[in-house]
Design a protein around this nucleic acid. Structure first.
Length: 525
RNA sequence: GGGGCGGUAGCUCAGCUGGUUAGAGCAGCGGACUCAUAAUCCGUCGGUCCUGGGUUCAAGUCCCAGCCGCCCUACCA
């Protein structure tokens, strides 16, 4: 991936009615780290997130709250979703709402093109519809109700009665794309990642695809079907199109050509929408399919999937208020192998904060800056001749930079951090072995002392540059203490080791202060 | 019913196309050191690699069966 190449990355758009929890935040942070890395590498980066605001469920909750659905969505965007982005320091370049005119207008454009091309036909549909799920249910998805719904069939997910609906709907000829999709997966093994998700999807598509009902007549909160305004577009069909309407489809051909195709980061539960329906839609429209669909794993809390339907959701603020934003970002990126499910626990979070951020990285910065301040009044000394140990540090700086960049390109964020941390650990070891405090006791060792601290502080600068995408606030503070030029987020990440040191350092407050945890018991979620 | 993923040290996890005494981090234990956020560094304890078969000169790593967990999907109705 050469500098200046286009990197367009997206998250799923938030369903506004959801309550933000760390699962949403996890997807956002992962995408944000990738975006920041590419941006800092000089790639033409565009990072999109946004909200999904149509559908019957939103219409109903809005009505129940005595406001219009648009007012309801506005309120949730303002009070829940935009605050979430700032809570976890997300650097999105754009925020699309499916109620934006740029979106609705071009959803219609897209649909009209599919219609004109013969990929849409009229059909009858009868089925059990769950408002909570926003979709029709097969009989097997239903269970016997209990309590107030005893005697009725209810949705297995929401435990609420389903409705028998009969509609004249418009259908998308998705079945035409069974083979083209299989060919796509075959010819481009990286289209769906990781492997586990890819296997799942291939098996699913091999069974053959059925046509997809893409309109609804039973309510009107959605994008009108352009040739029949008694129908609104199915919410998923509408939602998926955000990735191109935001990129300029139908409104800015130049921007669209430059950005598309993009990389989609999604949870594995919705990977199928993105790896099956979405590319089929694009193929039908004669557009390029996405560059990649990456389905990450779930956060497990107490061994169970964190669920928005159950009450295991944890609000991001619960974590950031105690540990800070950077720790939140670092923890989830480091502790979880991106693509696999990962266990969250307060104990693990606290342990990693302490050993890795406070004792490992934070303390490294403290000790180096303290010694420069103490022995050289903060002025960074010029190095003398480098010995093998000094050269080894330089070599490591280079090695981890290259390795981290390679890992990021594979979307292996956790591996990138593991690589970078090798430099953290090696620098701590280097200082312990070189014993600058011992060198300082004999003026004859003055040059050697300078060389050691010069080497160490350069390593610290390299770390600031490499870690800026993950822990932007701490990296910026450190960069300031090192008197680095400009902003750390503008330093070329792929040549992080090239920083040669500023003129002097200034004292630094602990980047990750020790945290005294109140009690062993944590509040239930 | 069909399918996917996982089951490796107390905990969280690595172990690619099978090959020396199965690894890391954390926790535990012992030691060194003092620049630093009682931090750092070194050493050390610790595993029937879910179970049972099989293939192979050689299996955590391949095959079969089973058990457990999570998930996708179907049908019966």
């Amino acid at each position: 991936m050469a500098d200046g190449s286009s990197f367009y990355i997206t998250t799923p758009i938030f369903y506004v009615n959801d309550v933000p929890h760390i699962g949403h935040a996890y997807t956002e942070v992962a995408s944000d780290v990738l975006a920041r890395w590419h941006r800092q590498a000089g790639d033409d980066t565009w990072f999109l997130t946004g909200t999904d605001e149509h559908g019957q469920k939103i219409l109903r909750t809005a009505t129940a709250n005595g406001v219009t659905p648009k007012e309801w969505a506005d309120r949730l965007v303002e009070t829940a979703w935009l605050p979430l982005l700032s809570t976890i320091n997300i650097s999105n370049d754009d925020f699309i709402r499916t109620t934006d005119e740029r979106h609705e207008k071009n959803v219609q454009l897209f649909l009209q093109r599919l219609f004109d091309a013969g990929f849409i036909y009229t059909g009858e549909y009868e089925g059990f519809y769950c408002v909570g799920c926003e979709e029709y249910k097969q009989a097997g998805d239903l269970v016997d109700g209990t309590g107030q719904y005893a005697g009725q069939q209810v949705c297995a997910i929401h435990s609420k009665p389903v409705e028998l609906l009969e509609e004249r709907n418009y259908f998308f000829r998705m079945s035409d794309f069974t083979q083209p999709l299989l060919d796509l997966y075959e010819s481009n093994p990286h289209f769906i990642q990781p492997e586990s998700v890819r296997n799942e999807i291939i098996q699913f598509v091999k069974q053959g695809l059925t046509d997809l009902s893409i309109s609804r007549q039973s309510f009107d909160w959605g994008v009108k079907v352009p040739w029949d305004d008694t129908h609104v577009v199915y919410v998923w069909f509408d939602a998926l199109l955000n990735y191109i309407t935001a990129a300029g489809y139908g409104s800015d051909d130049e921007a669209f050509a430059r950005r598309w195709p993009g990389t989609h980061i999604v949870g594995k539960d919705i990977a199928r929408f993105h790896a099956v329906i979405w590319p089929a839609m694009l193929m039908a429209a004669g557009l390029e399919v996405p560059k990649q669909v990456f389905g990450h794993g779930w956060l497990l809390v107490g061994g169970e999937k964190m669920s928005k339907s159950k009450l295991t959701g944890i609000a991001p603020e619960q974590i950031t208020e105690t540990f800070g934003v950077d720790a939140f970002r670092y923890y989830f990126m480091r502790a979880i192998s991106f693509g696999n499910d990962g266990s969250f626990s307060w104990e693990d979070l606290a342990a990693r904060y302490q050993s890795e951020l406070a004792n490992g990285f934070g303390n490294l910065a403290s000790r180096i800056i303290a010694m420069l301040t103490r022995y050289f009044d903060g002025v960074i000394p010029s190095p003398g001749e480098l010995d093998a140990a000094d050269e080894a540090i330089r070599t490591t700086e280079r090695r981890v930079t290259v390795a981290a960049d390679a890992a990021i390109n594979r979307l292996a964020i956790h591996e990138a951090l593991a690589e970078i941390w090798e430099l953290v650990d090696e620098l701590n070891g280097y200082i312990t072995i070189q014993e600058p405090w011992a060198l300082s006791k004999d003026p004859a060792n003055r040059e050697r002392l300078g060389t050691v601290l010069h080497t160490a502080v350069r390593g610290l600068g390299t770390l600031a540059v490499l870690l800026s995408p993950v822990i932007p606030d701490a990296a910026a503070k450190l960069w300031t203490a090192l008197a680095g030029e400009g902003h750390v987020a503008d330093q070329p990440v792929r040549s992080a080791w090239e920083w040669t040191g500023g003129p002097a350092v200034v004292p630094l407050e602990p980047l990750f202060p020790r945290i005294e945890l109140p009690e062993a018991d944590e509040p239930a979620a």
